[in-house]
Amino acid sequence: MQNNDISSEPRTIMRALKDYRTSRIARSIIELLVTLVPFALLWTLSWAALSAGHWLGLLITIPAAGFLVRLFMIKHDCSHGAFFSSKGANEWVGRVIGVLNLTPFDFWRHTHRHHHAHSGNLDRPRIGGIDTLTVEEFRALPRNKRQRYRFYRHPLVLFALGPAYLFLLDNRLPVGFMRAGWMPWLSTMMTNVAILVVVAAMMWLVGIGPFLLVQLPITLLAATIGVWLFYVQHQFEDTYWEHESNWTLQEAALHGSSHYDLPRILRWFTANIGIHHIHHLSSRIPFYRLPEVLRDYPELREVGHITLWQSFASVRLALWDEEKHRLVSFREAKV
């Protein structure tokens, strides 16, 4: 148990969090096994259930998608070098999981690090996150681009069409990074080849139709959950956005990331990613140690606190109001 006397100043908190950055090899291996093995078993069970009725197989894909989300979160920890103490172990476990969730690990790690480095900065390209305009930026757009942004921010696009496009199509090419060197291409193309090999092997084993009937629902549901989690972690009313002259990494981490307080079972499936403000303050903390921080420093529980029920209200938010310093809806912005 740590001393609970901690300043609310982000830099002080970051220094205190260094004590939690050590991964535990046995715990990491167990977390990987209790996620990967049930996912494989549920996938097989869903395929076997197809003969008893398609709806039964579809029901089984729901928990399977939950385990796929948890695998993504383990890969996320690997991208920060947090899951294992070994750099090589983090990279290769991350790459293998990247094949399962259709995400090129090294390229995704590159864009995700940009997100961590510039989240909440109005003057930096918003790479690796949900595109968010200020009210004034939106008003300055020509009509066709305003309509395009409205379409992009529609819930059906953000949480249905968007995730499907992102994981099935967008991740297949390093769009927007064509001149960024060999890494985006190598990461993406090698992942594509590995996906092709795995998909071809599975189709040969179980058949094309059964494979698609099992894998597509799992992938699409997991993708939607993943995008929703990422959205809620930064798109809440009192989040943090500033121009570079006033922006600080520490303030953006603590106040621009939510504490998404989920029910216990959902916290497990999402690998504590809801404790996002702590994660952004110290991304090297393994996900299974994040609850230790809230236990030792309970005052951090209320920073950016959002419940599951409260999170649904964030769907209407679409623009950053620089005068009110909060996210607002199109209606509130009167645009």
Rank of each mutant, 00 (worst) to 15 (best):
N4I: 06
R11G: 01
M14T: 14
D19T: 14
E31F: 07
E31K: 03
L36N: 01
L36I: 14
V37P: 00
F39M: 12
G66A: 14
L68S: 03
V69I: 13
R70L: 12
M73K: 12
K75M: 15
G81D: 04
G88L: 09
G88S: 10
A89E: 01
N90C: 05
G94I: 07
G98Q: 06
V99N: 12
N101W: 13
P104L: 00
D106T: 12
R113L: 14
H114T: 06
N121M: 06
G128K: 11
R139F: 00
A140T: 09
N144K: 03
R146I: 01
F151D: 03
Y152T: 12
A160N: 10
A180W: 13
G181L: 12
M190L: 14
T191K: 02
I208V: 14
F211D: 04
T224C: 14
V232N: 11
Q233K: 06
Q235E: 09
E244T: 14
S245W: 00
W247I: 02
S257L: 07
P263G: 15
R264I: 13
G274V: 12
L281H: 01
S282D: 13
R284I: 01
Y288M: 03
L290A: 00
L290P: 15
P298A: 04
W309Q: 12
S311N: 08
A318Q: 13
W320K: 03
K324G: 01
F330V: 09
A333I: 01
K334E: 15
